[in-house]
Design a protein around this nucleic acid. Structure first.
Length: 449
RNA sequence: GUGUUUGUGGUGUAGCGGUUUCUGCACGCCCGGCUGUGAACCGGAUGGUACGGGUUCGACUCCCGUCAGACACCCCA
């Protein structure tokens, strides 16, 4: 080698490489999300990573603008990288809603970028998995959103999670009654921290940041701290918002949603009315959702969303009310890792065929092709080598099964099926349409899946 | 963005102001022992002081900066 200085290989702060071990569960999660979204009729869309800066700025306050990756492109245009999928969707809807028609249901799974400070589970490039229904005010869309969240978590493999649901109208009604409607943003921001910092600090922040009186803060907290079974909270809520049209509508919508979700077969404990959740976002106006893992509540909400009155107000005169939610892919992966839900495999295939006898390449390729045609994922080792080395390779990558065939097997018209985790091995006929092999393989693979 | 803290082969660690390629351990990777059965064992090979500056006769070790990570705050569309 020359004495030239080598460039140090490194990644930017907040950006990561994904090795197969991390990428395989990641892709699996994305596939699951896609499958569930599609099962409800949400259609896939995509938008450019880069947008005109004016599309992106001023949508979430100064803080967001500071986090925006922005620069001038080669044509001198001011551009920025999208920091979420909602703003591009608003632009997209304003531009295309005429040809799409309403209601319109889309999902969008893509990377977004934020130049914020990094933390565990928070990076500058990360993936969002959004789904939204726009052009609809009916509670049916809110209900469907709750069902999608529920099915999604189930499909990913969680049995113990809680979808917390609330309605901004309830909070708005209360704030009207206690005279804090004007300062709702600051009040809700404070309230959103209830679970994290406790009622005293929330009351203090309401007084400091929103100018609330101690009595006003206490009133808000009284409502937010209602707890218990959904039906109990609902009935306790009614008198607290009495006289506020908004508040009453909110309570009615919550009642409707909870009843419908139960009717659709969701277990009582999976969905809970929680008056304390507010979400920090200004633009939510109705139903709001947060989803927590019962075994790992500290990780925060893994799927959040809510109803908004007008998605594309900034870009269009047409009113587009809607509701949607977003799965926090990276946060969820971090949680699953911590809960030991991610298998440590470095291969997406389950079946390994050692390239064992050099002259038999054609036979190995034919065998692999037949198994693939039957829907199995199979790798043939790319060079003829000692069998022991090949099995070692297969073991380290996490293959479940090796299909071993050497001269003896070929002569007898058989092959060995070896379970790599137990070491057990059985013999199967090699000929025919591979149905016997496939059956034997599926038999081995199924109980563990 | 602020504060605290950390940075030694691919990974995880231990040591030291006095070696010209730092020394050590564990794991990994590669080769062989063993072209036909891996996750055991044996031998060998590979590979490092994050980057830049300063103090010093001498720096991996001390100091400063940069970059990166962790934690807390802030913020969270």
């Amino acid at each position: 080698m020359s004495g030239e200085k080598r460039i140090e290989p490194r990644t930017l702060k907040g950006f990561r490489d994904y090795l197969p071990e991390a990428m395989i569960p990641r892709e699996r999660l994305i596939e699951t999300a896609r499958r569930v979204y599609r099962s409800y009729g949400f259609s896939p869309i995509d938008t450019p990573a880069l947008e005109y800066l004016e599309i992106l700025t001023g949508k979430g306050g100064e803080e967001t603008d500071k986090q925006l990756y922005k620069f001038e492109d080669h044509g001198g245009r001011a551009v920025g990288l999208r920091f979420d999928l909602t703003v591009p969707f608003a632009r997209f809807a304003a531009q295309h809603i005429a040809e799409l028609g309403t209601p319109f249901k889309r999902y969008h799974i893509a990377a977004v970028w934020r130049g914020e400070n990094t933390q565990r589970g928070r990076y500058r490039e990360f993936m969002q998995c959004d789904f939204d229904t726009i052009g609809v005010r009916s509670s049916a869309a809110d209900i469907e959103t709750a069902l999608v969240i529920h099915d999604l978590l189930r499909a990913i493999g969680f049995d113990d999670f809680t979808v917390r649901v609330n309605n901004r109208l309830v909070l708005a009604g209360l704030l009207e009654r206690v005279g804090l409607a004007e300062q709702s943003t600051a009040v809700l921001r404070a309230l959103d921290k209830l679970a994290k910092v406790g009622p005293e600090k929330v009351a203090a922040e309401m007084q400091a940041a929103a100018g609330a009186s101690p009595q006003q803060a206490a009133d808000v907290l009284k409502l937010a701290q209602l707890a218990g079974a959904n039906a109990d909270v609902l009935s306790a809520l009614a008198p607290l918002v009495a006289g506020s049209e908004k508040g009453q509508e909110g309570v009615a919508r919550l009642a409707e949603l909870l009843a419908a979700v139960r009717a659709a077969g969701v277990a009582e404990e999976r969905i809970r009315l929680d008056v304390s959740i507010a979400r920090g976002l200004d633009y939510y106006t109705g139903t709001i959702f947060e989803t927590f893992l019962d075994r790992l509540p500290t990780i925060g909400s893994v799927c959040s969303g809510g109803r908004y009155d007008n998605l594309a107000a900034l870009y269009s005169n047409q009113e587009l009310p809607g509701i949607g939610a977003s799965l926090g892919l990276d946060r969820l992966l971090a949680a699953m890792e911590e809960l030991g839900m991610l298998p440590k495999v470095a291969t997406p295939a389950e079946i390994f065929i050692p390239y064992f006898v050099a002259e038999r390449l054609h036979d190995y390729l034919r065998l692999a092709a037949r198994l693939r045609a039957a829907g199995l994922r199979v790798e043939v080792y790319p060079e003829p080598k000692r069998l022991g080395q090949q099995l070692k390779y297969a073991d380290r990558r996490g293959f479940r099964i090796a299909l071993i065939a050497g001269e003896d097997e070929f002569a007898a018209g058989q092959c060995q099926i070896k379970d790599l985790s137990s070491g057990e091995s059985r013999t199967t006929p090699l000929g025919g349409d591979a149905a016997g092999i496939v059956a034997a393989l599926n038999d081995l693979l199924r109980p563990k899946t």
